[in-house]
């Protein structure tokens, strides 16, 4: 039996567990290996793994970056909209939380839904811009599933695929992507005309390659129509699912792309900020999840020409999949991304 001291850490579901330092090191190595095996990216270097171990093996409740190494926080979906109201939320985050960017959003968080209430969103955004100093962006999801029946007008590809009706499923996704790109562009142009600093196409690719295609097409169109606008493309998961399988953007097949490949397309489409996302395995430890996350995203940070704002919300980027994510785990995830990935923001 080991005499090593046990150190508190977290599982991916947020629950507390204790591991020895040796067990944590083994989890870090296993997390790196899992990422390398899956995506064929290089492993973290030995000193990077050592540093991650130091971050995870501390018994401190809170962990933070060095003074002077702070990064920009874009805070997608700013505020909960229940206590202070929407403008009040933005002001609270600006004045009390020190947010670098705030994001106005509709509770539905879908461009399709927002399109129907756009005048109200535009007026709210204009009012917010009169009251705030920090940049205000508008965010929602491409949310491709909303275009399929019963929520939308198009045949449901998730029903067609199990029936083997592949051609129809593909055609449905192509049609939905066209509609989604149109709606995203329509909303973006509307909020730009009301004074928005940027738009956020959040959780792009959530419904697979057609979802990401809609975001890329929209970003290109928005860049052409609103040349000065900031565009953030945030992802939904580490790899683009091939729900269609054959869709391409400028000759690059979208299905199966990893963060370092996604970011190049995002930049080409006109995005000024890219948000990679890596899903958390809720049955693995924080050291395992962080090691896997950092390994998958390291090439993206090294190769990108635009700022990288890592997604570190609930269940992504090493942050446990828990509604009340523990401070100890969240702060370690933030520090690890800054120290080891050299991200431009979170």
């Amino acid at each position: 039996m080991t005499t090593e001291q046990r150190i508190p850490t977290r599982l991916g579901d947020g629950s507390l567990l204790t591991l020895t330092r040796s067990e944590m090191r083994a989890d870090v190595e296993a997390g790196v290996e899992a990422a390398v095996k899956r995506s064929h990216v290089p492993p973290l270097k030995a000193d990077e793994m050592d540093h991650l171990l130091e971050i995870c093996a501390s018994r401190a409740r809170f962990s933070s970056v060095d003074i002077g190494s702070e990064v920009v926080l874009s805070i997608d979906g700013t505020g909960g909209q229940l206590v202070a109201g929407r403008q009040g939320d933005l002001l609270t985050f600006e004045q009390y939380l020190g947010a670098d960017i705030v994001e106005l959003y509709h509770m539905d968080y879908s461009y399709k839904a927002v399109k129907t209430v756009l005048p109200f969103e535009r007026q709210t955004l204009k009012n917010a811009q009169q009251a705030l100093t920090v940049p205000v962006q508008y965010g929602a999801m491409p949310d491709l599933g909303r275009y399929s029946r019963p929520d939308g007008p198009i045949a449901n590809w998730s029903e067609l695929l199990p029936l083997g009706r592949v051609a129809e499923a593909r055609a449905a996704q192509e049609e939905a992507a066209e509609m989604a790109a149109h709606d995203i562009t329509f909303v973006a142009e509307g909020v730009w005309d009301a004074g928005a600093d940027a738009v956020d196409l959040d959780t792009s690719g959530a419904a697979g390659d057609a979802d990401l295609l809609a975001a890329l097409v929209a970003a290109r169109e928005i860049r052409d129509r609103c040349p000065g606008i900031g565009i953030e493309i945030g992802m939904a998961s580490e790899m683009v699912l091939g729900m269609h399988g054959e869709l391409e953007w400028h000759g690059v097949r979208l299905a199966g792309l990893w963060p370092h490949q996604q970011v190049k397309l995002a930049a080409e489409a006109g995005a000024t900020v890219f948000g990679p996302a890596v899903n958390v395995n809720s049955t693995k430890s924080l050291p395992w999840n962080l090691a896997r996350t950092l390994t998958l995203v390291k090439p993206c940070c090294e190769e990108s020409t635009i700022p990288i704002h890592m997604n570190v919300g609930m269940g992504v980027g090493g942050v446990p999949m828990a509604v009340r994510a523990p401070v100890d785990a969240v702060s370690r995830a933030a520090r690890a991304c800054v120290d080891i990935l050299r991200v431009d923001g979170l």
Binding site: V65, L73, L97
Partner: peptide
């Protein structure tokens, strides 16, 4: 969550 990120790594906004 946002408060934690702000304290752990944020530039502090305004």
């Amino acid at each position: 969550m946002s408060a934690t990120h702000a304290n752990a790594a944020g530039m502090g906004g305004m």
